[in-house]
Design a protein around this nucleic acid. Structure first.
Lengths: 252, 252
DNA sequence: CAGTGGTCTAGACCACCAA
DNA sequence: TGGTGGTCTAGACCACTGC
């Protein structure tokens, strides 16, 4: 059988042949993007999708395999396949790679200093693919571990997407992942992020907020987070105290 | 068919059921570990392995899929499946995540200052799972990009594994990945590494070798690299200048 | 052209979960 | 017990490589 769900896009250089399971993957992805199934909900069973798309279950399976490998879906044997969410404890710290040098991680908390609406700087506009002057939301907060301030973060969001975001709403959400808030209150699911790390000296403000001396070396983590279709929806810069913590990374 | 290559290990908590393809994977892994096929060489075809292990080709395929996903094997359509190697250009910088802030990466070079044999410190012993006082090789070198010194690295290796390693041998190898040298000259293939990142102030020595002022914030990258069976075989600490470069990371 | 990996199918059966 | 994902098989055909 050489069923073709949609004619393979003929583009220069790129693959001249799009496997059926990739087409199915694209269709499921479109459903996810359109919100056909919400985060935490189950998508239809493999056999149901196979019937819907007129392909074998094995083909659907391979499509879902890839989406699960990309952390967009979560398979649970005997129960079904679910749309991934940042609400579950396991996903909570998926994007925060900080670990204590010794012992177990202490209790986590966040303190928001600022949450105001403003206009995108040239840099913010470039990072978020906006036009300079477009509306943005700027958040400044500190993350505490074991009661100690460890991370100072400046988060910039496109104002058009995050309309009703206030300091109060953030405070209510205290303790949970901010990505969960994006998901539940703004229908925006984070799926991927790029980070650039540097070492930087603490300026007086950062030094005060983190409780270190000015000039102390800090780990600077600049992150752009993306939702479906590689659309950037968050730009943040974090300054990490690394005297008793470190940023972990695994290479394969 | 419910063929069982080896009785599933009955262990507490752990899976009470080991799928056939995992057993095949373990067997292929054993072959890789034993050097049955050398880096860069082709392993037997899927059908050949299927016949050898008395399973279907699909089962072999799934085993190889996982090994390829872990970068231990490389599939090349129409040609075969090959043992991964650090010798190919594509693998060259797999473990070096540094990128210039602007423009293309400049030409790469390394300069080795020191390569001496010594005894493992308590810390080195812990990192490399040796006993304090065991033989080690200590290397100090600088990595240059576009002629500028950017990284200062101290590498510690278990002396028992790296017997004939000298500064001369390192110099001859100039320009290529050091992991390629480990592979070709010492039969030790790096497959995985864990990194811990911190910010640190440049001490006088580091400052001199990197051409910055003492106290300049540097990115400290501590890495333990592993070979088959999660055996640590390299411990290194790098100090990165991040005034015009940054460490990149992708989160999924 | 032969040989390799890559895709797709159809069907059987197993492991797991919830009701 | 029924439904879900997970495994395994056997066979067909396609895409790619090298001779």
């Amino acid at each position: 059988m050489t069923a073709t769900i949609q004619a393979p896009t003929v583009s220069p250089v790129a693959p001249t042949f799009l496997p059926l399971y990739r087409q199915i993957k694209a269709l499921v992805l479109r459903g996810l993007e359109a919100g056909e199934w919400k985060p935490g909900e189950a998508i239809p069973s493999e056999s149901e999708l196979a019937a819907r798309y007129r392909v074998s279950q094995g083909t659907v399976r391979k499509a879902i395999d890839e989406l699960a490998a990309e952390n967009l879906l979560v398979r649970r044997q005997g129960r079904g396949t679910f749309v991934a969410t940042h609400g579950e404890p396991r996903q909570q710290f998926r994007f925060l790679r900080l670990a204590p040098d010794h012992g177990e991680p202490g209790p986590y908390a966040s303190r928001t200093f600022e949450c105001r609406r403003g206009r995108a700087s040239a840099e913010a506009a470039r990072m978020l693919e906006l036009k300079p002057g477009d509306a943005v939301v700027a958040i400044r907060r500190v993350l505490l571990f074991g009661g100690e301030p460890i991370v100072l973060e400046d988060i910039t969001l496109p104002g058009a997407v995050f309309k009703g975001l206030t300091a109060e709403r953030l405070a209510e959400h205290e303790g949970a992942s901010i990505y969960h808030l994006y998901e539940t209150d703004f229908g925006t699911r984070m799926i991927r992020a790029d980070e650039k790390l540097k070492a930087a000296a603490a300026d007086p403000t950062a030094a005060r907020l983190l409780g270190v001396a000015a000039g102390t070396p800090l780990l600077s983590v600049e992150r752009v987070a993306f939702t479906y279709g590689d659309r950037p929806v968050e730009w943040r810069r974090g300054l990490y105290r690394t005297d008793r913590h470190h940023y972990t990374n695994a290479l394969y």
